[in-house]
Nucleic acid binder design. Structure first.
Length: 281
DNA sequence: ACCCAGGCGGGCG
DNA sequence: CGCCCGCATGGG
């Protein structure tokens, strides 16, 4: 059993992070459960207050599954220090207070890249459906359950089979991404690279632009200085920080770096989720 | 019917 | 640089 302080599974999952795109989350009578698959197996994660427990299947052991969970939810991160350091104005302080315990998840780079290539010009509900289709179509079966597919499993398929999962025009991006991640692109190397250099490497891939690259760095590499700007973040920030004026991406990037520094990825996730939940637009 | 969705690539001035 | 366009698909 684990004790996790300052953690809201609900805000973490519902704020549209990669895990939410392909897992089952339930909450009733104060008990929460998340079932998710990885390339190695299946994890059942249960939470009641601050008490967490888990079961697993696949290649995991009790200890490696525990490690998976610790890493995925950044359990060892000093979250209160991060909250304090980005609570630099009333809007952010209020968002953090109301949605206490929202954490940036730390996911696998390939999983994250696939999720956010699917996400472009799309909505969260459909992203979920497409991710589930991809898992059911390409994920290897373990004990009757499809695991998360590895890049090589998609790289070998036709674009038609990818498109049949509902991806639309993103089929060729997905195919090329899978090819890159299964050979050629050294995904592990980006862990050790500085933010700017890693971002340039990602943006060199077909179908990955400014926003998706930042998502992969934030949710896949835990580079907390990444600040993904999507339509929601842009509009909420224009309203809350720029007097309703149209503001360029460049200006918003600069503003976020200056205001929230190296933890601005957290600020971004609060802006995104708080803005949507409070129907600010 | 119309509009939009956690954008990107390509072409243009 | 900035701006504009097309892009698959499904839900409101």
């Amino acid at each position: 059993m684990l004790i996790i302080k300052d953690f809201s599974l609900r805000h973490t999952i519902e704020s549209g992070q990669p895990l939410a795109f392909y897992s089952d989350y339930t909450r009733q009578h104060g008990k929460e459960e998340l079932r998710y698959v990885t390339q190695k197996g299946i994890i059942w994660f249960r939470l009641s207050g601050e008490r967490a427990d888990y079961t697993f299947e696949g290649e995991y052991t009790k200890s490696s599954a525990g490690e998976e969970i610790r890493r995925r939810f950044s359990i060892d991160e000093d979250i209160m220090h991060i909250y304090k350091s980005i609570s630099t104005d009333e809007f952010m302080a209020k968002a953090i207070k109301e949605f206490h315990g929202l954490r940036i998840t730390c996911n696998d780079p390939w999983e994250t890249a696939l999720c956010f290539v699917v996400s472009q010009f799309n909505n969260i509900k459909r992203i979920r459906g497409i991710m589930r289709n991809l898992i059911n179509e390409f994920g290897p079966v373990y004990d009757g359950i499809h695991l998360f597919p590895g890049p090589e499993q998609i790289a070998d398929s036709s674009t038609a089979r990818i498109r049949a999962c509902g991806t639309g025009f993103r089929d060729r991006y997905i195919k090329r991404l899978a090819e890159e991640f299964s050979s050629g692109f050294d995904a592990k190397r980006l862990y050790r690279m500085k933010y700017d250099d890693a971002k340039a490497k990602l943006m060199a891939l077909d179908g990955i632009g400014d926003k998706v690259a930042d998502c992969i760095l934030l949710f896949g590499y835990n580079k907390l200085e990444a600040f993904p700007i999507d339509v929601w973040v842009k509009r909420v920030m224009e309203k809350a920080y720029f007097n309703g004026r149209k503001t360029s991406m460049r200006q918003i990037h600069d503003f976020s770096a200056e205001r929230w520094g190296k933890y601005r990825g957290y600020a971004q996730q609060y802006i995104f989720w708080y803005g949507r939940e409070k129907r600010m637009i």
